[in-house]
Amino acid sequence: MSDDNHKKKMKAEALWIAGFLVVLAFTAGLNFYITSQKDFSIATKMTGSNSIPNGSIPIVVTGYQWAWSYTYYNSTGKQTFVDNLNITVNQSYTLVVTSIAGAQQFAVIHDLYIPQMGIQIYAVPGQNNTITFTPDKTGTFVIECVEYCGYEHYLMRGYLTVVA
């Protein structure tokens, strides 16, 4: 390799690395920026200090083998749904998710996932995880369990209906 050529190659390498680091730094920045937004929420273990935000309606979600049950508190009292959930658009909700033993011996890990809402949260035995979201569109969406939880795992799914 001639000296001149060598210099050119060095420059290419420097450019590649610099360009690469810029893209990476940009990604990291975006990561921090988006997660600092007020409407961003991710599964968080419930302790004393992080309770339900003001104005957000709590829904207690329990996963068991093999269904989701949703207990919904409003002014008229409490209501329980299994598999499917009905909620109102532009209203903030906080899911409080946990796992209990069903027909089988143990409570196992599940993972509640609503792809069209970008919401995902583990249901861990003996632990309450919370996540807050506000549906901004009406329609019917899918709810899935995406952590393998036994024989009928694939049937642990339902529909989310958002009404105006």
Binding site: T27, N31, T35, I42, A43, T44, K45, D111, Y122, V124
Partner: peptide, 19 residues
């Protein structure tokens, strides 16, 4: 395990480490 209840702080740590 980022959706298991770690919360944002640990999530960001592992996320940045992965980068």
């Amino acid at each position: 395990l980022m959706e298991s209840g770690f919360g944002i702080e640990w999530g960001l740590f592992f996320s940045t480490a992965s980068l």
